[in-house]
């Protein structure tokens, strides 16, 4: 009895002495945020479905079936002129399986989200950290440039780019990323300015570490918190931009598809085939909600000042 009691005490003591990292703390707080946790689970499910899309349905995503043109799913509650047995979400205007197309749209949208966000992350973090760390006149000039870019109607440049270069997919990814780095640069700059006055940066400088070394080894790793939050909020923004362009017919081209393309098709047919609008719109809205909830949750978890 006494022995176990003292072991427990010892364990408690060890636990008390063991430091808790910022990330550990943040994770504990995040776990208590039910909306964020549910969003993570849901998003993982959507990503998994998108990844496994070719295995989930006997129909190919561009497999045309002229016998089943704009047919409702078998369980559709309102009456429909034709029913497509075996097609869970119904079929589109050329008889392609909508379930498969919505999942392929998810693939495209998530891919754009990841790649373009990565591009914006790379540019924004390098730019912001450099401006903030160097300070002075260089900082003034660099941030003035960001201000000017902010006031440009950027979406128009992306549209012009897409038209000029024939809807090149890679270019689309990069162009959207290149639009989204401005806010990232501002956030990282703010962090860098406050971090560079800390003792550990001074110590590194005294130890002879070069400017680039300090930026990449000391400033950027310590600015990760706000950056992570902003990244989760950038992804839905990027997905929106891509869908916006695809909706206007300036993004992803047939037979490839994205949520923007599907919603645009659905909007044209909404009177006769509302399922073509509802399913892609719903999945897209759910995904965007998830990212926003995760972003908000992360912000609360990493920056508990408001608590």
């Amino acid at each position: 009895m006494i022995a176990t009691g003292s072991t427990q005490n010892a364990e408690a003591l060890v636990r008390a002495v063991q430091g808790r990292s910022l990330w550990r703390d943040a994770w504990e707080r995040l776990k208590r945020n039910r909306a964020a946790m549910a969003s993570i689970a849901l998003l993982a499910l959507i990503a998994l479905l998108a990844l496994l899309a070719p295995l989930l349905s006997p129909y190919g995503f561009s497999e045309v079936n002229y016998d089943l043109i704009t047919c409702a799913p078998p369980w559709w509650p309102a009456g429909a002129e034709c029913i497509a047995p075996g097609h869970v979400f119904g079929t589109d205007a050329v008889g392609r399986d909508l379930f498969e197309r919505v999942l392929y749209g998810a693939r495209m949208s998530l891919a754009v989200g990841l790649v373009a966000t990565l591009v914006s992350l790379l540019i924004g973090v390098a730019y912001g950290a450099t401006a903030g760390y160097l300070g002075g006149r260089i900082d003034d000039v660099m941030m003035r440039l960001v201000d000017i870019l902010y006031s440009l109607p950027f979406i128009f440049f992306v549209i012009i780019l897409m038209v000029m270069f024939d809807r090149n997919l890679l270019l689309l990814f990069v162009a959207i990323g290149a639009v989204e780095w401005l806010t990232m640069a501002r956030i990282v700059r703010g962090q860098a300015i406050s971090l560079k006055q800390k003792e550990f940066v001074e110590a590194a400088r005294a130890g002879g570490v070069s400017g680039g070394g300090i930026i990449f080894r000391h400033i950027i790793p310590n600015a990760v918190g706000p950056v992570v939050v902003y990244v989760t909020l950038t992804v839905p923004g990027v997905i929106l931009t891509e869908s916006f362009l695809s909706f206007l017919g300036l993004g992803v081209q047939e037979p490839l598809t994205s949520w923007g393309v599907l919603i645009s098709d659905g909007a044209n047919q909404m009177q006769s085939a509302p399922w073509m609008l509802i399913f892609p719109a719903l999945l897209m809205a759910v995904t965007l909600f998830c990212f926003n909830f995760i972003g908000d949750g992360l912000r609360d978890a990493l920056d508990p000042r408001d608590r």
Partner: peptide
């Protein structure tokens, strides 16, 4: 507000016209 920010214009436009217009 979260809903308004999340759901894009090109979704609300067809949905609202479906409900109120058709």
């Amino acid at each position: 507000a979260m809903t308004g920010i999340t759901i894009p214009t090109f979704v609300t436009a067809p949905l609202l016209s479906l409900v109120f217009g058709i």
